[in-house]
Design a protein around this nucleic acid. Sequence first.
DNA 1: TCCAATTCGTTAGCATGCTACTCAGTGTGG
DNA 2: CCACACTGAGTAGCATGCTAACGAATTGGA
Lengths: 168, 168
Amino acid sequence: MSDWSIGERATEPGHGGLEPAVKSSGQEFVIEDSLGYLVNRAARSLAHQLAEELRPAGVGIGQWAVLMFLWARDGMSQAELSRVVAIEPPTMVRTIDRMVRDGLVTRVPDPDDGRVTRIRLTERGRSLRDELVPKATAVNARNLNRITEREGRTLKRLLAKLLVEPDR
Amino acid sequence: MSDWSIGERATEPGHGGLEPAVKSSGQEFVIEDSLGYLVNRAARSLAHQLAEELRPAGVGIGQWAVLMFLWARDGMSQAELSRVVAIEPPTMVRTIDRMVRDGLVTRVPDPDDGRVTRIRLTERGRSLRDELVPKATAVNARNLNRITEREGRTLKRLLAKLLVEPDR
DNA sequence: TCCAATTCGTTAGCATGCTACTCAGTGTGG
DNA sequence: CCACACTGAGTAGCATGCTAACGAATTGGA
């Protein structure tokens, strides 16, 4: 699938009134108007585009965020990384496994704390920065181009607001 | 991880200036300001919350969208479903596998076209609608509560705009 | 000082997403 | 009518996300 536009409707065309909604006890749930649906679609679209850019370099989409944080501060521990990337530790373990396998990072035991493993960029991991950052920037820019700059700022501000300490 | 707020910064606190950015050839890439990062975080946060609501019913997050479309029009083919849900066919195959396993749907061969399998809701699949739609509505509402109603409409409008026929 | 709670990394097992490929059934242009 | 293209479903193999549960190391409190 290379088409990320909003899809067909569930209801047959030409059966009279469009009704892409589920009526449940009088309530209506219009899927195309669901925040979760829209955010999920947008996230997959963006991830798909970024993955395309990263593929030639052999970097997976899940490795991207880790690289970003390591470029800002090399030698973070796995626990620190899973906190900042907002990924569960078991997921981080296997992402790091793949990055070690691909020669992007190495695991270094912390001398002061026997529980901690520090993640260090290899030369290759470090050098990918100049190659990949412009590509990622381009993906964001290309997508933001569809809306005004002001709208772009608004969009990001609202998304950030959703993430600040969710209820429940 | 139950904390979906914006995480720690990559740079050490108190080393002077905050610098959560990766400088690459003069460019700066501030991760907390990246559209892709924000959308991805928001999507996982919302998916996590919805999954929580669906779990008691034994419905997986990937099955949710399929159910939504089947509630609107029962008997769609797998190909139709993968188009409207915007999921690749192989992913749909296995999602349907699990839904069959869990007694939500059945596969029915199309009498007119030997290639086509139609997906029909079971009584259980149909009956979950009244139970789950309010829960999903609540998740969206709870998250939209953090911003004004006007902002919510803006957010959804901008997200939808990103999805309309991406460049490239 | 020493036991209990916490933290860190990890394993196991599952769901959901993708690409690449295959095979069978349909449809179409000569 | 028939070869060839297209479409739908499925298989294989992988990446990335999660929860549950552990064992080892550290820390904190009595």
